[in-house]
Design a binder for these strands. Structure first.
Length: 805
DNA sequence: CTCATACGGGG
DNA sequence: GTGTACGTATGAG
């Protein structure tokens, strides 16, 4: 472990691990206090918290004010320390506490603490924010009970405009000013990847027969049930190795929805203690929400004491919310997408894994090991910025990995800064005006196939506007918002430079890259925290001011581009795709972008963000790009059907390069070949069948009185099932309409016409914007009529779908 | 046409 | 956050 930054107080600087942290710093004046919180020169306490205790790798805290902190210490071991803190909450009025005796606490420059022997106390906060009182107690339950009793309510949630509080771990981190991973490089964090191989997807009728494990030190192991006296011994050995390798982080792909629940279910069935935690405790399940872009997905989190659990599936989904071109979130396809799959990677189809193990266990061992290696690689690529965020935001690493940006990251940091400055905090929605919220500007101008395409965008559009025009929530009385934004922008540049000076792949380079990535995330999060009506520092008017400026800047950029003869294809919030004249070089494009940039307001910079040989513009936010290296990128949901039968995807892969090369005869040929392959039954039924999840039991389904395809298929086949099973079936030919039939390997009685129709109407139809409607029949028609052009003579069309204003 | 329902990912 | 998403596909009526 290396130490970064100047030596602040280390663990030894505070006394008593069972009392509250008592620093021996001298008092400073009120004005210096504001400086400390909002503008600390060099100290950056608003970004990192005031406490620099190094090596924290996990924290557990309870509403009863007990914290358990796991720290990496100098000899490389990990120590658990018990700590006590005072759970706290914020209220606008002490009357909410009813008859609970609370004592006024002496003001100090630190987060207040309860004097010895007191049950509850408060500190009055400065300024005219809504939450004027910070109330502390030995036990959160004292406060909760007193408030609910005086207000006649059942849940604190019902009083959310009157009581503000955070989960216990965050209360602890805010109160102590601590954060994770101080002084630790990414490589100092011990990450363990694991993956189960099971006989079925459902732990009720399946077993674990293999577990692959590896950790960030390069250690690797594959456990086989046969070598450990069966499943119980296998799980036992897994648990033993987790304890022995003692990782800080457990990682897996879809761990929360597969590996963890499966392990829990099997360990219960086999009566094995699943002591995966650092206190030998079993995983605990809770409901949580994964933030993906602006949306929430609910999931069942599993947690163990002393270790963080990370799901790389979540990380991949969150990345796709930014890039929109990840075809599938599965481990194998994500690894290929990011270029992380090795050439020697072993592949085994899911349903084949168990059978393969029986005949060729070595192959499954290789496969399982490749899985955890890919999880490690994905984590290295996608999680390092969250690790760096964890050293700034008062939250656990595993929660940062699923948190949103505004309320998830910025709000806890602002609350920490305000409370440490003794400042009152606004209420959610305090600055929400009646006016309508305006979003970013999006418009598609041209559809069809275009050549010589360039994407230019404004670098950090919204944060640049906030800095250039000094826009912040009006409720931010401490001006922490612009202060943090400025500091982050500055520090990010510094980390970028420091990183570039390091050897590629070195631990220091990874560290600086992670820091700059984390800072980029924070910088881009400030806008979001203003735009949310339910965020403490939300200010719709300020957010609207930002987007309005953003629209103006984008419009100005587009005017300049058009004035220079460029054709606009599509604009989205902070960037625009356009065509440049045939024969232009990269340098010509850079020059153009620089020229346009000079016309834009001070503080706004535009960047060349990509160049493409061809673009097929289909719908707003849905397009296909082909690089000068021939590589194809499909962006948007329109090219990603949820029931992607393999044959449709294969058609896309074959026909799209031809389409972009304007080889319409080739497109026709691909289509005809695929139609022929379907009709002559050369397409294997695996490529046509769908697999459907069964959630209802046979009784529940019969009782529902409704008809659902997947259950009807099973009933017709006289098959039994349980909730959690999957059924695979296809559309079989029978009379005029055909019917759904249970999948059998090698079946050829599928309804060819059904699949031909689908190929035409759901896959081929996505290519329609490339040609005139009257040419569609010669591309994908059943037979060419006498008026239809020969496909080789089709001319591509570009349609102006919106006039540029 | 509209309405209802299910998918994603893991073996 | 107790905000079970979202956009898409399919079949029934």
């Amino acid at each position: 472990m290396r130490s970064q930054g100047a030596g602040g107080p280390a663990a030894g600087d505070w006394v008593g691990s069972n009392t509250l942290l008592c620093y021996t710093r001298t008092m400073i004046t009120e004005s210096e206090m504001l400086l400390t919180a909002a503008d600390a020169p060099g100290g950056d306490s608003t970004l990192f918290g005031v406490d620099e205790t190094p090596g924290i790798v996990s924290v557990l805290a309870t509403y009863a004010g007990q914290a358990r902190v796991w720290r990496r210490v100098n000899d490389g071991s990990t120590q658990a320390e018990n700590d006590a803190f005072n759970p706290w909450l914020l209220v606008p009025d002490l009357a909410l506490l009813g008859d609970l005796p609370v004592e006024r606490l002496v003001p100090s420059d630190r987060f207040p603490t309860l004097p010895h022997g007191r049950q509850a106390g408060y500190r009055e906060l400065d300024g005219d924010g809504h939450y004027k009182y910070l109330v502390l107690a030995r036990n959160f339950a004292f406060l909760e009970r007193a408030i609910l009793r005086s207000q006649g309510r059942d849940r604190l949630w019902d009083l959310r405009d009157h009581v503000y509080y955070r989960p216990p771990v965050e209360q602890y981190l805010v109160q102590t000013g601590r954060a994770f991973y101080k002084g630790m490089l990414w490589e100092d964090v011990r990450r363990m990847q694991f993956d189960l191989e099971t006989t079925s997807l459902n732990p009720l009728d399946g077993e674990i027969f293999m577990i692959s494990m590896r950790d960030s030190s390069g250690w690797e192991r594959v456990l086989d049930a046969n070598e450990h006296g069966g499943e119980a011994g296998l799980i036992g050995e897994f648990v033993r190795l987790v304890g022995e390798r003692d990782p800080d982080v457990l990682e897996g792909h879809n761990v929360f929805d597969f590996d963890m629940p499966y392990l829990v279910a099997r360990s219960i069935a086999k009566e094995v203690h699943l002591g995966m935690g650092r206190d030998d405790d079993a995983p605990v399940e809770s409901r949580d929400a994964l933030k993906v872009g602006a949306r929430n997905q609910s999931f069942r989190r599993h947690s163990v004491a002393g270790r963080e659990i990370i799901d790389t599936l979540h990380a991949v989904k969150r990345r796709d919310a930014i890039v929109h071109d990840i075809r599938s979130y599965g481990l194998k396809s994500a690894a290929r997408y990011f270029g992380l799959a090795s050439a020697e990677r072993e592949y085994v189809e899911g349903p084949e894994i168990h059978r393969t193990w029986l005949m060729d266990p070595e192959r499954v061992r290789r496969y399982a090991l490749d899985d955890v290696r890919e999880v490690d690689a994905l984590s290295g690529l996608l999680m390092a910025s969250s690790y760096a965020l964890a050293s700034m935001v008062p939250k656990t690493y595993e929660r940062i990995a699923t948190a949103g940006t505004g309320q998830g990251l910025i709000e806890p940091m602002l609350v920490r800064a305000y409370l440490w400055a003794g400042r009152s905090i606004p209420r959610a929605g305090a600055a929400i005006a009646e006016e309508k919220y305006i979003g970013g500007y999006t418009r598609m101008y041209l559809s069809g196939i275009l050549s010589n395409v360039v994407k230019a965008d404004v670098a950090s559009l919204y944060p640049s506007i906030m800095l250039a025009y000094e826009i912040a929530p009006r409720t931010d009385s401490l001006r922490v918002f612009p202060g943090m934004l400025q500091k982050l922008t500055h520090l990010r540049l510094e980390h970028k430079q420091l990183g570039r000076a390091q050897l590629a792949g070195s631990a220091e380079r990874v560290y600086h890259d992670a820091m700059q990535g984390a800072m980029k995330i924070l910088i881009n999060s400030f806008y979001g925290s203003m735009g949310a009506s339910f965020a403490l520092f939300g200010d719709i008017a300020a957010a609207t001011q930002v987007t309005q400026r953003g629209q103006e800047i984008l419009q100005q950029m587009m005017r300049e581009l058009r004035a220079k003869g460029m054709r606009l294809i599509e604009a989205d919030t902070d960037g625009v795709y356009f065509t440049v004249p045939e024969g232009w070089t990269f340098e010509d494009e850079l020059r153009l972008v620089a020229e346009v940039g000079r016309e834009l307001p001070e503080g706004i910079t535009i960047e060349h963000d990509g160049r493409y040989a061809r673009m097929y513009s289909y719908q707003e936010k849905n397009y296909i790009l082909q690089g000068y290296d021939g590589k194809i990128k499909m962006v948007g949901a329109a090219f990603k059907s949820s029931r992607n039968e393999p044959y449709g995807e294969q058609f896309f892969n074959e026909a799209l390069p031809k389409l972009l090369a304007l080889d319409f005869a080739g497109v026709r040929e691909s289509f005809e070949q695929r139609v022929y392959a379907i009709r002559s039954k050369q397409v294997p039924v695996e490529d046509l069948a769908v697999t459907v999840f069964l959630s209802k039991s046979e009784e529940a389904y019969r009782a529902s009185g409704k008809k659902e395809e997947q259950y009807e298929v099973l009933l017709a086949a006289n098959a039994r099932w349980k909730p959690g099973d999957r059924v695979r079936y296809y559309h079989a030919a029978h009379g005029r309409h055909g019917y759904k039939k249970l999948y059998e390997p090698g079946a050829t009685d599928y309804d060819a016409e059904y699949y031909v129709k689908k190929l035409r109407e759901t896959y081929a139809a996505r290519l329609c914007r490339a040609v005139a409607p009257e040419d569609l029949n010669s591309l994908f028609g059943e037979m060419r009529g006498m008026f239809d052009r020969d496909p080789s003579e089709i001319k591509p069309v570009v349609v102006e779908v919106n006039p540029p204003e």
